[in-house]
Amino acid sequence: MAASETTTARPGVSVGPTSEFSLFFHVKPGHGDDLREALRTLQNHPGYRPGEYGMAVATIHEARFVLFDDDTRLLFATSFDGPWDSYMEDFFTSGPTLALFDAVFQHVEGYEGLPDVAAVKAFVLSAQATAAAYARNYGGTVKEIRKAERVNKAFQRVLDDPAAGEGLQHPALKPLLDEASD
């Protein structure tokens, strides 16, 4: 565990509604292969399979697990809509996250034998390190981005209709017409 980093919770860095969240763990000696296998299994789970976009937690933008230092260390990094410290108890009492984390965390030091959610929370926070630099290229929450994708898909369907040019001539639709040319 990154003990020197801390035992106190820090909020991480936020950009707009989204905050970064990075955890650094020490892999239990001899568990490198098992952890790789657990992550391979995870990668083949619905939501994590290549080309899918439906993780169990719908408020994170992406998640990555990185084994490094010859599989002796594990990084978990994600971006989350909202202040993640407010949601820690929720994560560790709600089904999908609990099962997912359990399969991975059992291979890192300090996880076993934790008596209650407060201890799990303390364990996770002790592995957290706040980013020294963090930037984003879009401002929306996952919910807004998904909505934006749906709207754009609908808009492209409208543009595929030969009558679109004529239909978009109404003054109220000018902002859409401006986006219709390319």
Binding site: M55, A58, T59, D90, F91, T93, S94, P96, T97
Partner: peptide, 10 residues
């Protein structure tokens, strides 16, 4: 419920 990040009972 579909968000997977909130336990309203808390």
């Amino acid at each position: 419920d579909e968000d997977g990040s909130v336990n309203v009972r808390l």
